[in-house]
Design a binder for these strands. Structure first.
Lengths: 330, 330
DNA sequence: TTGTAGGCGTTATCAT
DNA sequence: ATGATAACGCCTACAA
């Protein structure tokens, strides 16, 4: 059932049908009603793909994230999808893991599918391969990125100043709690994580606290990653009275392992999470966290996309500042 | 840059280009190589939308879920996306909430976008409005549904026998723990939830335990929903030594509130969660749960879709049986 | 083995 | 106000 069938049924030409379909002016009230009535009884569904071919716009956006099973990405992806849908856009969701070749493949497919824009969520996309793929497949597509340092005249960045979260955490621990031996748990190897590490160092220096390399541990995000981080610190005999995690769930894992070693939270060790997801409210006691403002992030990402797509001016670089939320683990 | 440009550049016709693009036989090795080399240096990207128009297939599947911020749906959606991508399909993700009109709108848009199939995850879609929309917009599209009772010759059901989970839980509590006053927490008002309620009743009867209406409470899924459930039970002076939750996170909320009333878990009250998400491993003690097998569910949903799409025979009805996983809260 | 031409379902331009 | 007709980018008989 297509526009021709409707035209025939209504005894008009396809142009007229198209006109009433798109609410064009210049169509006689009578014929319009006629066509409308035919339309009503014929459950006709216009083909977006045919439209897209002529309009050169698909009204769909590609969204890349490493893994939406991580509640942080699920939250952001949710907000993006909901917000974009109010703009009339749908979302093709792509879970890339941190597999560079998967990122490339998805970006290519999205280009073939002619998405109107691409949003990439997470510092994991801050890499050369991604930059290359954008250049190659999306040089004329708006690309909105989160926590990335990539540049380009079709690339727009919305970044959480995660490093500033470290500032807040260290300031609080040192000034309010008088804690100096602060362990830092990091996960991926991305520019943002590098920055967190650097600022941690600088802050310690600022307070005249010696920087101890072993107090910074690498792990994988997740419950077991948190366990492993505490294992690591303990095994190497590193002193610490506070742990700043890379992640809420990782911090929960850390708490559980600390408990196994008989170290009380917050009595013996203060624990700070990252992101302010549900996990930080589930732990006992509830966890002090660096709130990364997921909802705002999602809103800004989709708004940026919506603005570019509607031809509105938009800043190529926007920052979101995290906040420290005090709860029971510090 | 389209197929014409390539043809001109290579000095052949567009058919030839199309042939090498699609690896058709019957094309001379030499011309093929020639075209290939032109292709290589011209970063040409074939348009899927043009292809879709002629092929009548978009290689994309619509996936509806109420809210992927709920880790349960995120987990299933993730698996679906990953699995379908290996079949060469992309996923348009739609968060409908439990808003019937949103479901309808999304289903219509997906029809316009000519998706090759629709997957709906969650018993919330087991309603007349959805059935009507399927009939109206997707009568010729394969529809794979999860936990739904909808029928139709293009509808395929994959269901978790959630009610069987209740059987496992009640059997265990009564037989192993000698507990008879078992509270049941329910959330949505769907056929599946109704079944859970019914089977709970039947099991009690089987054991000769009186059914007490007040021991079954309705709440919203979530931490505060669990709190509210315990409040509800307490306020009405209902005795209970066990709680079967509708959700892991809701059960965690219940545990937290029980603690406030000084009731120890599992000493005074046994708590059982539902789904076996990360939340059940985060609580202290770790939570006994009815495992709904999210990954298997996701795999079966996408496999069903893949099979239908590739013309393979497939059962219109498939069941997944949950399992009881014993941990520290019982 | 290769090229020509028609069609997929729309929108939009230009006549009428 | 309405109707032909040419795009949009690709595939595929059919012809050569």
């Amino acid at each position: 059932m297509n526009i021709y069938d409707i035209a025939k049924e209504a005894g008009v030409s396809i142009s007229t049908v198209s006109r009433v379909l798109n609410n064009h002016p210049n169509v006689k009230k009578q014929t319009k009603e006629n066509v409308l009535s035919v339309l009503k009884k014929s459950n006709y569904i216009p083909s977006s793909v045919a439209k897209s071919l002529v309009n050169k716009a698909t009204k769909t956006i590609g969204v890349l994230a490493s893994d939406i099973r991580h509640i942080h990405y699920a939250n952001i992806a949710f907000t993006i999808e909901q917000k974009l849908s109010t703009y009339g856009y749908n979302v093709i969701l792509c879970n890339t893991g941190n597999d560079k070749s998967k990122m490339k493949d998805y970006l290519r497919v999205l280009a073939e599918k002619q998405v109107d824009g691409v949003i990439m969520v997470g510092s994991i996309f801050s890499c050369d391969q991604t930059a290359e793929s954008i250049q190659r497949y999306h040089s004329n597509t708006p690309v909105v990125m989160h926590n990335t340092s990539l540049r380009g005249d079709n690339i727009y960045n919305i970044s959480s100043e995660e490093a500033y979260g470290i500032v807040l955490a260290v300031d609080y621990l040192v000034q309010e709690k008088g804690i100096k031996d602060i362990a830092l748990v990091l996960d991926y190897d991305t520019p943002v994580v590098y920055q967190k590490h650097e600022i941690y160092r600088e802050k310690l220096e600022e307070y005249g606290i010696p920087y101890l390399k072993k107090r910074v541990v690498r792990t994988q995000s997740g419950l077991s990653g948190g366990v492993a981080a505490i294992e690591d610190l303990t095994k190497h005999g590193v002193d610490f009275s506070a742990v700043i995690g890379c992640d809420d769930i990782t911090s929960v894992g850390a708490m559980q392992q600390l408990e196994k070693y008989g170290r009380r939270v917050p009595g013996d060790v203060a624990v700070i999470g990252f992101n302010n997801t549900l996990f930080s409210q589930v732990s006992t006691p509830a966890m002090t966290v660096i709130d990364n403002k997921e909802e705002i992030t999602g809103i800004m990402l989709s708004r940026a996309m919506g603005d570019v797509l509607s031809g509105q001016p938009i800043s190529p670089q926007t920052l979101i500042y995290p906040e420290l939320i005090l709860r029971g683990t510090t």
